[in-house]
Design a binder for these strands. Structure first.
Lengths: 209, 209
DNA sequence: TGCTCTTGTGTACAGTTGTTCACTAATGTG
DNA sequence: CACATTAGTGAACAACTGTACACAAGAGCA
């Protein structure tokens, strides 16, 4: 029998496995219900290869969270680069978020699943990414002098709420078909509305106490 | 061999199976990863019995969503009965929510999981419960004359945001141990803060447009 | 009472699962 | 170049999976 061994680049199979898991998630499966054999089958790799790169499915999940972090940071960088004037800040940011979510659909699906997922470690990882995101947002708002009347704690809570709201919109967004422009636009408008509501609340916070 | 058949009440095994699924979820498993045999084992019932009541696991999930609806309605009724004065409305409501979430921990875990779960039907069912909840909230706010300056659409968006925010807090709440009073109280305070922020936003909405 | 319908049981089976093992080709390091 | 390490393969196995079937005990109704 011919042996079809051909290792091209180091870590290639590893990527194939991680992509395979994401693809299955993209097809509507839940990460928690995926099995090793299933993933290797989708990746076109023999089951035993799995163990060369991951100890189990939880391990793979954790490594996916790490990559998710990169995706989120890319998104943040683009958002920062595109903030032109403050009054369009929300619309622009929501737009960037949505386009990234659609472009990296499977990653964000994985994120949405992981928030209430099976592995505590994955859950904590995603949560930690969200915290980081919120703190970066707080920094930006301070830097842009948009939150000078808020205490550190109040700003922290506000940013946390913003991030949660956007994360929840993920669940809406990923439920509709990618090219259903109308629905996507509805979600964009609604999310924008949410954030405006929150920022109006933050702007009038001091006087309300 | 003795035959231990003893059917006490109609639908008893059905309940046992649904409870078994919830118990497994409560133990940290994800609903999507549960199998028929596993659930029947936990319920102390033979695997074949499952098919007398459900066609498959998705079917069981759907019926759990129906029961979840009852739990939510009970919670709403209690919240309505305990609204004394408007200024403590948020604190009281959050308190009632948290105590219900802790008392029906497994149900709410199932709900949090189902939002990004595997079965589209379960997902839609939970989403529908949330919409209903939001519309009831809108009715109450109108009735209490707390939202007279808001258009129907703006009130709708506000209530949606409130429900989402509370639902997201579920994920925090269910991640901590039930008797970690300190953490639970932190979550209570933070959720209250979120809602206050949103309502301040709603109160100042008109002037901001 | 006898009848039918519902619900629970035991057995069975083919397919799938996670994991171990010994083997081999390619890679990087000296 | 030789050599140790890494990354891939296929066969094997016991355990578990979903589902089908035939059967029996009890419930409800005539």
């Amino acid at each position: 029998m011919a042996d079809h061994r051909q290792r091209r680049k180091p870590g290639e199979t590893r990527e194939k496995l991680m992509n395979a898991a994401l693809e299955l998630v993209g097809k509507g499966r839940h990460f928690a219900s995926l099995g090793i054999r299933e993933v290797t089958r989708q990746a076109g790799v023999v089951p035993t290869s799995f163990y060369r790169h991951f100890r189990n499915m939880d391990d793979l999940g954790l490594q996916l969270v790490d990559e998710l972090g990169l995706v989120l940071r890319r998104m943040m960088r683009e958002a920062r680069g595109n903030v032109l004037q403050a009054d369009k800040l929300i619309e622009e940011s929501v737009g960037i978020f949505i386009s990234h979510a659609l472009a990296n659909r499977n990653f964000f699906l994985f994120m949405a699943q992981g928030l209430a997922g099976e592995s505590r470690a994955v859950q904590e990882g995603i949560r930690s990414e969200m915290r980081f995101f919120a703190s970066e947002l707080a920094n930006d708002l301070r830097r842009l002098r948009l939150a000078e009347h808020l205490s550190d704690k109040d700003l922290d809570v506000t940013c946390d709420l913003v991030v949660r709201t956007v994360a929840f919109s993920l669940t809406d967004l990923l439920g509709v078909s990618v090219d259903d422009d109308y629905q996507v636009d509805q979600i964009r408008k609604r999310t924008t509305h949410f954030l405006q509501l929150i920022f109006v609340g933050a702007a009038n916070w001091q006087s309300a106490k």
